[in-house]
Design a protein around this nucleic acid. Sequence first.
DNA 1: CGTTGGATTGGCT
DNA 2: GCCAATCCAACGC
Length: 203
Amino acid sequence: MRFGRRLPRAFFERPPTLVAPGLLGRVLVHVQPDGTRLAARIVETEAYAEGDPASHAFRGQTPRNAVMFGQPGHLYVYFTYGMHFCMNVVTGRDGVGSAVLLRAAEPIEGFDAMAQRRGTDDPRRLCSGPARWTQAFGIGRADNGRDLARGREVYLLEGEPVPPRRIERTTRVGVTVGVERRWRYLVRRDAFVSPGRPAVPRG
DNA sequence: CGTTGGATTGGCT
DNA sequence: GCCAATCCAACGC
């Protein structure tokens, strides 16, 4: 199958609340060290904007979040809960700390390698969750800072964008602050969306 | 330098 | 629904 061209740098050089819905239906590709190609269609994302208390960038630049403040179109990978990696696409102009968390996708290519890493054959358990997806793809520390617009190992293809009426918007999953912001974007009724529960806005 | 809690997941009650 | 797993960056003293 063909999924079109690579998404250009300009695609990412916008606020994360525009990039996040714009990434739905796109295809993330990871060419592994052994040459195996993995691909998945994005079905769920979250925006982490400038001035957003839930963002890793909220308290300014640190060694950990430095990639978020760099050139858009790069991959920001972080380690959490002592065992999981999550991946983001850096958005906005150089110097702005913002990104889009990649939360869930439908496996398209490299099913066997994903199943082996995940320890299950269930296609819905391969990439449906941010840490599941990085595990299935073998994404880790070494991938932090990779350039999606130019690199050879990890990149994004145009795929087929999801029209606005098929996009659902909710609060984000797992955040304890900024819970009123509805910055989680998902493909309506898609089976590969993560099982994560949106935050409940207090009121 | 000690403490805290996390953009999660899977297993168990 | 609840909670342990397991590391470590960020923050406060």
